[in-house]
């Protein structure tokens, strides 16, 4: 069982959903992202999702785009991302990388898998890679015992949900809004039906990404999902701190605690 599965299991045994927190590596700096992610772990994230900044993030809204662009302008490299994984995973938290596909292909799929595993990473979330094109990654993830988190969407047909979950390991990522990442003021009515369709097809835990930004929304999503995935809201805290590290870290802690309390109310 992977660290991610153990984290979902532990949450389930407490009768709650897991909290999955995202930040891009190298944002606001490489060391700054390590410090920020450690605060998020300490304050209650069960799983950490580390973004690999990419020049053409077609699934991300303005908030995460801005963070990725800032990280790239500061020169973050794929090797830096692996260094962040190592530092965060060393706390014992389940750590996955969320990455668009080209940087992995460029690094070498098997080499990336080997280095990710060596850094203590648990697997990959791949927003622009579906199982259809994932041959080399299926093989590398088997060889290095890594989780493969593919996405399902409200537009996925039953056939595609079945096909996708069959190739997932660790958990299934339900991207429950038809649109890009970003905090939203109300949760979507597309999410619960998607989760129930997905759960009918697999025993794997289902995490939901839907633009959650506070504990009340987290509680609502935790009512039907195994995991609540939060990204843009964390990034927003760091962006709004405008380089004030103390303010960013305090804000991350407060937000994490609010969300952690939310997943326990759901």
């Amino acid at each position: 069982m992977s660290a991610v599965e153990r984290a979902f299991d532990a949450a389930r045994s407490e009768g709650r959903a897991a909290l999955v927190g995202y930040l891009p590596a190298g944002f606001p700096s490489v060391d700054g992202s390590i410090e920020a992610l450690k605060v998020m772990v300490d304050a209650g994230c069960d799983v950490i999702e580390i973004g690999l900044p990419y020049s053409d993030p077609v699934m991300d809204g303005p908030t995460i785009q801005a963070a990725a662009q800032q990280a790239l302008e500061q020169g973050v490299r794929t090797a830096d991302v692996l260094r962040v994984v190592e530092a965060v995973a060393s706390t014992g938290v389940a750590t996955v990388v969320m990455t668009y596909w080209n940087p992995v292909e460029r690094y070498g799929v098997d080499r990336f898998a080997a280095d990710l595993a060596a850094a203590g990473g648990s697997g990959l979330i791949t927003p622009d890679l579906t199982p259809d094109e994932a041959g080399p990654w299926l093989a590398a993830s088997e060889a290095h015992d890594l989780d493969r988190v593919f996405l399902v969407a409200p537009s996925s047909t039953p056939e595609r949900i079945g096909y996708t979950v069959e190739h997932c390991r660790g958990f299934v990522y339900a991207a429950a809004v038809m649109g890009v990442t970003g905090a939203r003021t109300s949760t979507s009515d597309l999410a619960a039906p998607l989760v129930s369709r997905t759960k009918a097809a697999t025993k794997l835990p289902v995490g939901v990404g839907i633009g959650v930004s506070n504990g009340d929304q987290a509680a609502e999503v935790a009512g039907y999902a195994d995991g609540v995935i939060v990204g843009s809201a964390f990034v927003r805290v760091v962006l709004d701190a405008r380089g004030d590290t103390d303010r960013a870290l305090t804000g991350l802690r407060t937000l994490t605690e609010d969300l952690a309390s939310g997943v326990r109310r759901g």
Binding site: D128, T130, F150, P154, T157, M178
Partner: peptide, 11 residues
């Protein structure tokens, strides 16, 4: 091939 988000696969 087709390296795209799952959300667009049906379309």
């Amino acid at each position: 091939g087709r390296f795209m988000p799952e959300a667009l696969m049906a379309a």
